[in-house]
Simulated scan of single mutants.
Amino acid sequence: MNATPQPMTAQLRQWILEQAAAGRPAPELIDAMQRSGWREEVAVNAVQQVLRQQLEQTAEQQGLPPASAVPEPALAGAPLFIDLGDRQVSVLMNLARPRVVLFGNLLAPEECQALIDAARPRLARSLTVATATGGEEINADRTSNGMFFQRGESPLVQRLEQRIARLLNWPLENGEGLQVLHYRPGAQYKPHYDYFDPQEPGTASILRRGGQRVATLVMYLNDPLQGGGTTFPEAFLEIGPRQGNAVFFSYERPHPSTGTLHGGAPVIAGEKWIATKWLRQGEFK
């Protein structure tokens, strides 16, 4: 490779593919390119472009569902903070595959408490979407209580929705209503995917409200005493719930190949409050 930045070439593409096939992770490839004189943003874009194209080719060969656009925070250049106008949010972790980003200070303590106070009187046993019918059902894998705010229901909800839309570069109207969940000791949500299974008979009616889910943002409203982390079993990753922080993950196709199997680990001591925002392909109605 040249010691100066250059456009994508067949040789560079082949080198990236060979290194990836040998098991070298993307950050190592980017570091190697930077040591050879490439600017960081050029190296990142090149590696992402080649690996994404390769992934799409492999997915097509395997007959996987087509990929769609997904929300993506502005993380080019590896910023430590993202300025959202009304708040400066920390970037605490950035994982490429599966696509997982941990943000710090997304919500102020008083915003967290205000969401809890507004949600508490409206809590009921949490339901899951029943893709077999297109409705909702009680699921033994999910033992929390929860409720949904209507989009734009209050000034607080409006402010948070605008902040999330700016953070994730995704239209506000493509978001479902904000959901608040309460987990007592022993409560959990066993590993699952957030997209709607395209093979299920009820999925078609669900998709009419805004298309597939393509990303999730889980915001932590309090600090449990013990347990309650968000787990990604296939990535051997667990995010500790800390008040004001939020974990984002996206899934470009409704298929396990996205690696976004995740769950809410059991609360061992104390209680856990979270707010979840699901993002759709199109306007959620």
Score class of each variant (00 low, 15 high):
Glu40Asp: 14
Glu40Ser: 15
Glu41Ser: 15
Ala43Cys: 07
Val44Tyr: 07
Val44Asn: 00
Val44Gly: 03
Val44Ala: 14
Val44Asp: 08
Val44Thr: 01
Asn45Arg: 11
Ala46Gly: 08
Ala46Arg: 01
Val47Met: 05
Val47Trp: 01
Val47Leu: 05
Gln48Asn: 14
Gln48Val: 13
Gln49Pro: 12
Gln49Val: 09
Gln49Ile: 06
Val50Thr: 08
Leu51Gln: 04
Leu51Met: 07
Leu51Val: 01
Arg52Cys: 08
Arg52Pro: 11
Gln53Met: 07
Gln53Glu: 15
Gln54Trp: 08
Gln54Thr: 11
Leu55Glu: 07
Leu55Ala: 10
Leu55Val: 01
Glu56Met: 14
Gln57Asn: 10
Gln57Phe: 08
Thr58His: 06
Thr58Arg: 07
Ala59Cys: 13
Ala59Asn: 10
Glu60Gln: 06
Gln61His: 13
Gln61Glu: 12
Gln61Thr: 14
Gln61Arg: 11
Gln62Glu: 11
Gln62Ala: 11
Gln62Asn: 12
Gln62Ser: 01
Gln62Val: 03
Gln62Thr: 01
Gly63Ala: 05
Gly63Phe: 10
Gly63Ser: 07
Leu64Arg: 07
Leu64Gln: 08
Leu64Gly: 04
Leu64Tyr: 10
Pro65Val: 10
Pro65Met: 04
Pro65Phe: 05
Pro66Thr: 09
Ala67His: 03
Ala67Glu: 13
Ala67Lys: 02
Ala67Arg: 05
Ser68Asp: 02
Ser68Thr: 08
Ala69Gly: 10
Val70Glu: 06
Val70Ile: 05
Pro71Gln: 06
Pro71Trp: 00
Pro71Thr: 00
Glu72Phe: 11
Pro73Gln: 00
Ala74Arg: 00
Ala74Pro: 13
Leu75Asp: 02
Gly77His: 01
Gly77Thr: 02
Gly77Ser: 07
Ala78Arg: 08
Ala78Ser: 12
Ala78Met: 12
Pro79Ile: 04
Pro79Leu: 01
Pro79Gly: 03
Pro79Lys: 00
Pro79Thr: 04
Leu80Pro: 04
Leu80Glu: 13
Leu80Asn: 12
